[in-house]
């Protein structure tokens, strides 16, 4: 109950910020919410099921490009978005069916290689994808029914709606019996197998759900912000959700959102002083992994807030 109230409270706060936040922060929050959805999905695989992937950019890019290219081809926003979500899930399902035959370090490298192959594929088909340069969606392609997503307020509310659905579904998932089995697989794979759970299947489902989230974030990015480019398929976009999750707390529902929020503002504040984006990301990763491997919410949970999901 407390947990549900907390999450609804966060969503209500974000809704209030739609009316209160100054334009600059308003625009930034919309981006944070979309990337937080990416992080929420990453956390399903990493935080709850224990699958450390270094290739989630592939699923994000699958959503981004499926939506973007279909929009180019004249599809309207609704079906294009849906196709983007499904593309993320489908790519995760197929690559996971192969990659999940490995574990640990091998899994990290295999996912990294798959994502790298995806990135190179996008470059290889530059005539279609416009490569690193990318392309912009037409304004017509960014009309979701009567809603014009090129305008600030509808865009913010659309990002919030996506984030709300993603957050509440994840809350329901981690409190469900399936969520508990995911944690069981993370905690002790062999024990879970000998309790009769199909460990491979549990992992594959978790990775596919994670891919659906990443695909949704990518698809939303294309339509909300109107730009599609190969940069989103690069290794940086595999590291970002990992960073958000580590910062906010792996295995906590709100963690990746908190991580994305902090990281955005940290980079924003320091970029006034210097162009030190790479340093901020690198130093955050180092500090987290050495001093606070549980992240912010994970540490809070360990110190008494046991109800935190």
């Amino acid at each position: 109950m407390k947990a549900l109230l907390l999450h609804l409270g966060v969503l209500a706060g974000l809704l209030a910020l739609n009316f209160l936040a100054p334009a600059y922060h308003h625009a930034m929050l919309a981006r944070i919410m979309v990337l937080a959805v990416f992080g929420l999905g990453y956390n399903i695989a990493f935080g709850y099921t224990g699958l450390l992937s270094l290739g989630h950019a592939l699923y994000f890019a699958a959503g981004l490009y499926a939506t973007g290219l279909l929009s180019q081809a004249g599809w309207s926003a609704g079906p294009a978005l849906l196709a983007g979500v499904l593309a993320g899930g489908a790519i995760a399902l197929v690559s996971g069916a192969l990659a999940l035959r490995t574990a640990g370090v091998s899994l990290m490298i295999v996912t990294l290689m798959f994502a790298q192959a995806g990135y190179q594929t996008i470059l290889y088909y530059t005539p279609l994808t416009r490569g690193e340069e990318g392309f912009n969606l037409t304004n017509a392609g960014r009309m979701l029914g009567p809603v014009n997503l090129t305008e600030e307020t509808p865009r913010y509310l659309a990002a919030l709606a996506l984030f709300a659905v993603a957050l509440l579904l994840k809350l329901a998932l981690v409190r469900s019996r399936r969520g508990r089995v995911m944690v069981a697989v993370r905690e002790n794979e062999e024990r879970s197998r000998m309790l009769g759970y199909d460990v491979f299947r549990v992992k594959l489902v978790a990775l596919t759900l994670s891919g659906l989230y990443a695909g949704a974030a990518g698809a939303a990015w294309a339509v909300l912000f109107g730009y599609v480019g190969a940069g989103f398929a690069g290794i940086q976009y595999s590291i970002l959700p990992l960073l958000y999750t580590l910062l906010g707390g792996a295995g906590t529902v709100l963690g990746p959102f908190l991580g994305a929020l902090l990281m955005f503002y940290l980079i924003d504040l320091t970029s006034d002083v210097s162009q030190s984006y790479l340093f901020m990301v690198g130093a955050s990763l180092l500090i987290l992994v050495v001093f606070a491997p549980k992240g912010i919410l994970g540490s809070l949970r360990a110190r008494g807030l046991k109800w935190l999901p």
């Binding site: 450390l52 270094l54 370090v105 790479l278 340093f279 690198g282 130093a283 990763l285 180092l286 491997p293």
Partner: peptide, 15 residues
């Protein structure tokens, strides 16, 4: 943890 840490190191050195 070392993979994550060396990723951090990579970014810091590039910066």
């Amino acid at each position: 943890a070392t993979i994550v840490a060396t990723i951090g190191l990579l970014y810091i050195l590039e910066q």
